[in-house]
């Protein structure tokens, strides 16, 4: 580790991180740091490079150039250490629909190497917190989407990762459950987990401590929601987003 001080303060660091596919530069020298316990919103229009950047940070894709660390590990050299130390959930993939609630918990906890005793204890507290005790033997596919997503988040942090990556976790979820979900995010951040989250709901950008907005592979803006609105003379984060995203020159995806 080149700079241990920096890694104590920051959960994620990225320094000129880039990814090229042939002639195409999907991610273009992005530089930013995410503090420990911070809720960091990672926004951008479709095709701006969010997914590619996120894949590199999760250790799933090697950077073409530049550097990044997650939980103190280098994304290029130590991807396996990163995978053990992060949690991940997305709208598209989160749980196995044809396993029961309990089976999903046991499966993911087992994959992350929790002991049987720890799994039992974690399952019980998780089911209690989510008030899912009556549903624990039901197949996940029979649960309403909002419950699924709350369960998926709880499972994504079951191994107490330092950082959790959430890729559009609340898409299609009703407004009440969406808010309950964010309360879970807040609670988790208060306990020291770093949250890295993407969303298409601009009101959710307001719930983040800081927000970055990607345009054409670059980070076009990064600050607190209040500072961004002030800087762009905008009344809402939606306006900030539209002003920036309209500058995009490249085609989506």
């Amino acid at each position: 580790m080149k700079n241990p001080e920096k890694h104590y303060e920051y959960a994620i660091t990225a320094d000129a991180l880039s990814k090229h596919f042939g002639d195409f530069t999907a991610v273009d020298r992005i530089t930013f740091n995410v503090r420990r316990g911070e809720i960091f919103g990672f926004l951008g229009a479709n095709g701006a490079g969010k997914t590619t950047a996120m894949r590199m940070l999760c250790g799933l894709s090697k950077p073409s150039s530049g550097e990044a660390t997650v939980a103190g590990y280098d994304v290029a050299a130590q991807p396996e250490d990163i995978k053990r130390n992060i949690g991940y959930m997305s709208q598209k993939f989160s749980l196995y629909e044809d396993l029961t609630v309990t089976e999903n918990i046991r499966f993911f906890a087992g994959i992350y190497g929790l002991s049987d005793a720890a799994i039992r204890e974690k399952s019980a507290s998780l089911l209690r917190h989510l008030q899912l005790e009556a549903e624990k033997n039901k197949l996940v596919q029979s649960l309403p989407l909002g419950w699924k997503q709350k369960l998926a988040f709880s499972i994504a942090i079951i191994h107490e990762p330092k950082i959790v990556f959430l890729d559009e976790p609340t898409g299609g979820v009703d407004p009440l459950t969406r808010r309950e979900f964010w309360e879970m995010i807040y609670t988790s951040a208060r306990q020291g987990t770093t949250i890295f989250v993407t969303t298409h709901y601009m009101d959710e950008a307001e719930y983040c401590h800081r927000v970055s907005i990607m345009v054409d592979g670059r980070i076009a803006a990064l600050d607190t929601p209040a500072a961004l609105k002030k800087h762009f003379g905008a009344a809402s984060m939606n306006e900030v987003f539209l002003q920036l995203a309209r500058q995009a020159t490249r085609q989506a995806d």
Partner: peptide
């Protein structure tokens, strides 16, 4: 417009 960004939605 599900999963479509704010600009395309507009």
């Amino acid at each position: 417009t599900t999963g479509v960004d704010a600009v395309s939605r507009k």
